[in-house]
């Protein structure tokens, strides 16, 4: 990575005070923006741990001594003890979708990127086009497909399968794999490797960044999906977390504390994922294919 700062000689010449000033101004903007971005989240955290009634007064009473887990306990209680069910359901569905989608997207992306077959462009464009149809229009037909045709309603497969069908991952993988030089596969082909072998041994290892990014994004997207699981699930114990929390949203104007506590609980995987996979994420975006 180019170190542009190497091109600057900071602090060694008289005119550098101007540079320092600009540097501090720049840092100030950066820090300010970071604050703007984080303060609301900090507020969410504070509200989550402040007893709900304290938030309902004309001036919400925030006292650190009063911090408690009451709101979270309320959320657990109101879920009739199903909260960990919901958490588990969300988690394993997102995991399955994430792994499955990465694998499917990698295969399909590689094919769209590198292989030639009649109709390749058309099919790919159709994939992209469906990204632009709002889901409100698709919900009822999808329900017809899932329930009337396949009889999968109220099951987790009804959530997993449609999510695996999403084309975003395919798009990313294709863009990335397009930038891989063909010499790699050609060499392997000359060595007598089968197509699938090329895929497994040559392409996949090189595509780690995009695979990681796809896996992470798909996980998070599945984790936060709400409307479709809401519509397709009936039994409370099969709910995913976002759907379960929707029940606590009723009358939310009277319970901001519970709401924030629930929101916090639902966001923890996001934060964890980010902390653990931060590098892969940023690397996953640093490939030229995305820009052209």
């Amino acid at each position: 990575m180019v170190q542009l700062n190497e091109l600057r000689e900071i602090g060694t010449r008289p005119t550098d005070w101007a540079k320092n000033l600009r540097l501090s101004a720049a840092s100030l903007i950066l820090v300010l923006w970071a604050l703007v971005v984080f303060l609301p989240l900090a507020w969410m955290g504070i509200c989550a741990f402040t007893p709900n009634e304290n938030l309902l007064f004309t001036r919400p009473v925030i006292r650190f001594e009063a911090f408690s887990l009451d709101n979270l306990r309320s959320v657990f209680r109101r879920s009739n003890g199903l909260f960990d069910n919901w958490l588990f359901n969300s988690f394993y569905i997102a995991l399955v979708v994430s792994i499955g989608s990465t694998f499917l997207s990698a295969m399909a992306g590689y094919s769209y990127a590198k292989m030639r077959f009649p109709g390749r462009q058309v099919i790919f464009w159709i994939l992209l086009a469906t990204l632009m149809v709002p889901y409100q229009a698709i919900v009822i037909p999808l329900f017809v497909v899932v329930n009337n045709m396949l009889r999968l309603a109220d099951s987790h497969w009804a959530i997993i399968l449609p999510q695996l069908a999403a084309p975003a991952g395919v798009f990313f993988c294709r863009q990335y794999m397009k930038t891989l030089p063909s010499d790699l596969e050609d060499a392997a082909r000359i060595d007598g490797c089968s197509e699938f072998g090329i895929f497994c041994r040559v392409i996949l290892p090189v595509s780690r960044p995009v695979l990681a990014a796809t896996a992470i994004f798909t996980f998070l997207w599945s984790w936060e999906s709400f409307f479709w699981p809401l519509v397709i699930l009936r039994s409370e114990k099969r709910f995913v977390l976002q759907v379960g929390l929707a029940y606590l949203q009723d009358n939310s104007l009277l319970s901001p504390g519970y709401l924030m506590a629930g929101a916090l609980a639902a966001s923890i995987p996001v934060v964890l994922f980010f902390i653990v996979f931060q590098r892969q994420l940023t690397k996953g975006f640093s490939f030229g294919g995305l820009q052209g």
Binding site: V139, I140, N147, A246, Y247, Q249, D250
Partner: peptide, 19 residues
């Protein structure tokens, strides 16, 4: 159980898809 906020939509989807 339906939630007041999202229940009507859930019901609507079920009804209009014939279920």
């Amino acid at each position: 159980r339906l939630a007041w906020q999202s229940g009507p939509e859930k019901l609507d989807v079920a009804v209009f898809s014939g279920n």
